[in-house]
Design a protein around this nucleic acid. Sequence first.
DNA 1: CTAATTAAGTCAAGCGGATTGACTTAATGT
DNA 2: ACATTAAGTCAATCCGCTTGACTTAATTAG
Lengths: 404, 404
Amino acid sequence: MDDISPIRAKSGTNQEGTSAHNRRVMIEALRLNGALSRADLARATQLTKQAVSNIIEDLESDGLVVALDAVRKGRGQPSTPYRLVPEGAFAIGLQIDRYLTRAVAVDLVGSVLARAEANLPFDEPSRGVEVILGLIGGVRRELAGISSQSEERLVGLGVAMPGPFGLKNSDDKWMMPAWQKFPLLETLAAGTGLNVGLQNDAAACATAERIVGAAHGVDHAVCLYVGYGIGTGLILNGELYSGGHGNAGEIGMALLAPAGSGSTPLEHRASLASLYQHLDLNPADDDIYQQMNALVVAEDPKMMAWIDGAAHDLRWSVHLIETMFDPQTVILTSGAPETLARRLVEAMHPLLPSIADRPGRTLPRLQLGTTDPWSIALGAAAAPISRAFDPLFSAILKTRSRGA
Amino acid sequence: MDDISPIRAKSGTNQEGTSAHNRRVMIEALRLNGALSRADLARATQLTKQAVSNIIEDLESDGLVVALDAVRKGRGQPSTPYRLVPEGAFAIGLQIDRYLTRAVAVDLVGSVLARAEANLPFDEPSRGVEVILGLIGGVRRELAGISSQSEERLVGLGVAMPGPFGLKNSDDKWMMPAWQKFPLLETLAAGTGLNVGLQNDAAACATAERIVGAAHGVDHAVCLYVGYGIGTGLILNGELYSGGHGNAGEIGMALLAPAGSGSTPLEHRASLASLYQHLDLNPADDDIYQQMNALVVAEDPKMMAWIDGAAHDLRWSVHLIETMFDPQTVILTSGAPETLARRLVEAMHPLLPSIADRPGRTLPRLQLGTTDPWSIALGAAAAPISRAFDPLFSAILKTRSRGA
DNA sequence: CTAATTAAGTCAAGCGGATTGACTTAATGT
DNA sequence: ACATTAAGTCAATCCGCTTGACTTAATTAG
């Protein structure tokens, strides 16, 4: 943000930027299409066969892609498809929530190779960070047992925790104030030696949906995450959008009505926190997941009432999201059991009319995404993978040689 | 959207892409910083002095930049600053509204060189397009009188009209249904021989603020436009965001409450259309602008009541915008007289609390942008300029050679 | 009044990486 | 058997940024 020089300008680029971009384009193409021959890649990327050949050769020798058996399809020489090598890169993802933390190790294609979770002392980062470093260490050792090259190929550590970040009055218990003040990224970077990045939990969910879920290959998607809090992860133009200060999509803070008086934040009505309160459940219980599931299966009246109320507000949230972002699809994800999430989605129908209500849709306006409680950690891990391998505008720019 | 090939991939790039990007980076740097020497540009863009020299030389011979007098500043050889040449490029902007149409010609730096307006027969595109072509022709001739090279240097025609576009049930009078169905872009392209692009009026406003207004050099800004309808133009990551189907930011369609019953679209309460209705004014009146201004100056009670009501809803809109997009600033623009817009902004304070309410802000949360009724046409004209000269990700990509 | 220093900008060779066009290889169709 | 079609390689070329030495022109130190 703050430059020494007052001159505002974007970076230029050079052949290295070109090459970096083209490599990333190849990787993305293989990720989205499974396996492609060099000729396919040349056609799809507009590059010449020769350029593609050189790049693929590089990627192969870097261990990022591998040739499959040649396939005959009609006339002409058979083509040799290439696919991504999952073991070509790894990343660690970390979810920090109010009462627990989870760490996962994923590979280049987003498969989870190791996972671990632990309870976290509430809002005590200095103790919590010890737990976290232990967890990361464990996952990392497990990963080393799977691939001998795991350490060299570890591209980073992605952290996801509830936002918003950096606000004025963050001594609201809700927002884990002690964690907000704690120098988390620095501590984790020092403790692990990895590049560390941070995003909020909803953004992590969107990243997860993008790499292995319903948003795979969709350029404009919004992921509505119903967890302890509620938020949205925004995929705009094929990239995660995080706003001017990393807090874009924090819809949980949205007031439900223009009025100053009767207006509540959405989060207080349509989050799992509100469910816990409504049903008098303890979110710190180990079997909270099972408890919720049982109540849904039993069609417990209080649960059903909560679902109806939450669906009412969420329906409107989807309407707003569609109106503001014009996405191709909205994906509801949740830390709740799938039975509950599915009920919620059902209760949200029929959806409110909006600009998304257009002829010729291919994707549903609202779909249920993953409800795996591990998906936030997975999304956190996917972020460094994406930063390292996806075609991003920023990736072509020359980087300022970082002076002390 | 629909490719012949089912393979999904981004385009690659090559030296031409590199060069194109670097040229655009130079132009943007000069636009944002006024005048810079080659050495300044080299530092700002991370390129070498030599690369910058070559690019500047090219730009100079293309007539896009020009050297100023050398300036001495401390030791060393004096530097020669360069600035953009306004006459380096031109574009035409067209605003189509319900009752009138405006056309402007602008230059590379966004100065308006010619303007013309005309009444438009309501929702009769086949007759309207004749008026429009006449208007464009007039502006174009006027431009030719100013610059002999205007025709060669005309980069395109930008059109702005009220959105949203392409919806299902667009026989709502409000939405100019006949225009929605009319093959406008094709007709204008054929009639003018120019590249034609379309955006909604709020997006055009944002584009105008970006090129010459409050959003100049701001990467994340939302422009809230209060016109006959109401909408937002989104500047995200320094580029206009238009969503999956070009309708992002159509906040006028947003329902004001989660409830299905008592919920009205924002547009019906906080737009000039609602003002006209409330005060029983005729928007087709030629002196409607003066009428509104007089009512504000006289502090007409009905006008004041409308302002209070609209401010109430707009305050909440700003809250929602901040919550969803996390912009650095929100800019209120309007087709209304400045007196009215200023009153509106004042009445919106104090703003609702939101994530934008953070320490260390440099830009105001809400500021008044331009209220010049010509700014939509200006923004429309700025769009082709931006497409041709701003550093965009899409500009580095190889373009698919367009087969018939 | 030099001489040293600092900075802008040029020159010419170098280099990275995509392009070009001819060529090879290997399949299918007639 | 031969023409056709397509995948992929080879070697030369070309484009555009980089490198490092050099020139020019100012300020500051002695």
